[in-house]
Nucleic acid binder design. Structure first.
Lengths: 206, 206
DNA sequence: GTCTATAGCGGGATAGAC
DNA sequence: GTCTATCCCGCTATAGAC
């Protein structure tokens, strides 16, 4: 892979096109010809820069994954109070999701198709485990103080993620079922941040 | 497509195998050879019975969709009280999901890949719109009675679905991040029914 | 009905000219 | 670096024997 800055530009152009196509069609559904066309080049250039479709995919996937997880979950690292961490997490997630509404669907798809790959990827992402541990500690601290009812940290985390991420995963389905335009739907979602925080806190506060 | 009962058995054997393979690999990832092998036959037989891969997929998809939607959403049809409909809906969803944990991922994937097909499918599924309308009415009734705060029915429905369905979509990811075994994770999920109902009601009750 | 053999096409990757 | 031409494999679907 060439390293000077002009090559770098070309690589990024390809990666951007690849991202678009992979997100729309998935790994199997996307062809190298699709990607080349989207980037305005011919397909041998893809191999010149990245050697294989799989290599391009790995980079695109890794970046998408980091945007949704690594860049968001650092908000629950450290020993801040649970009632600071919850709004920070919801905020980070919702901002990311409104900007990239199709990323979760992409990530979840590919994880389901080949979970093995995910396992490898996590070997180098230990800080997600740390984030989970720190979050657990913040939960236990509040339970001991008696400010919240006893609750499994994992359950709380699942609830937050559910309320934030699911509406983006289900967007095509929900819009169709309830006859809501995508525009109107996104408006509902952008108002969701505060509703989710309230709902979560109402659920756990004593 | 032959219609006598022996043929019917053969067709069902193929459809069952196809379901397994399509759910695991998706439409593009699954090959007709995979399906044939899973069914213990050779691939020309698939074409003999169903003429094409696409036809087999349509049937499998339609059934999966109905199991998760049509068979569940009838619980919110009619003019029962909202406080009967919520537990009925959560119950129906969770039972279906525990039995078929991989179905939502399959459905959402394929909807994302080709939303056009969904639109056609819905033309014949008007009762989902009726279900939504009846659910809305039950919500408005409680708001007028003053038993719940004003809430958009669609938001309420999204929250319920989020809390029920997301954990199944995210299972591979969550298990990895939090170092929980699949076994233990499913145990947490099976206890979720009551937690979800409580959380939803706490959120809306005045 | 069920098989073997194969047609026919589409996609990833490479050769080699420029 | 970027292209055209092409190799070659794997997939869906069909032909045709049994």
């Amino acid at each position: 892979m060439p390293k000077n800055s002009l090559s770098h530009e070309a690589e990024e152009k390809i990666l951007k096109a690849a991202r678009t196509v992979f997100i729309k069609k998935g790994y199997k559904g996307a062809t190298t010809r699709d990607i080349a066309a989207e980037a305005g080049i011919t397909s041998p250039l893809l191999n010149y820069y990245f050697r294989s479709k799989e290599n391009i995919f790995s980079i695109v996937y890794e970046r998408a994954f980091n945007s949704l997880y690594s860049n968001v979950y650092h908000t629950i690292l450290g020993d801040a109070s649970l009632f600071e961490k919850i709004p920070a997490l919801v905020d980070g997630l919702m901002k990311e999701l409104v900007e990239n509404p199709d990323v979760p669907s992409f990530i979840f798809n590919e994880v389901t198709r080949s979970p093995e790959k995910l396992v490898e990827r996590f070997r180098s992402k230990i800080h997600l485990l740390e984030a989970y541990r720190d979050f657990s500690n913040s939960v236990h601290a509040e339970v001991e103080k008696g400010t919240i009812r006893p609750v499994r940290p994992i359950t709380l985390l699942i609830n937050i993620q559910s309320l934030c991420i699911y509406p983006f995963l289900a967007r095509p389905l929900i819009c169709e079922i309830s006859n809501i335009s995508i525009r109107e739907y996104m408006k509902i979602l952008s108002r969701r941040r505060d509703e989710i925080i309230e709902m979560i806190e109402k659920d756990i506060r004593i």
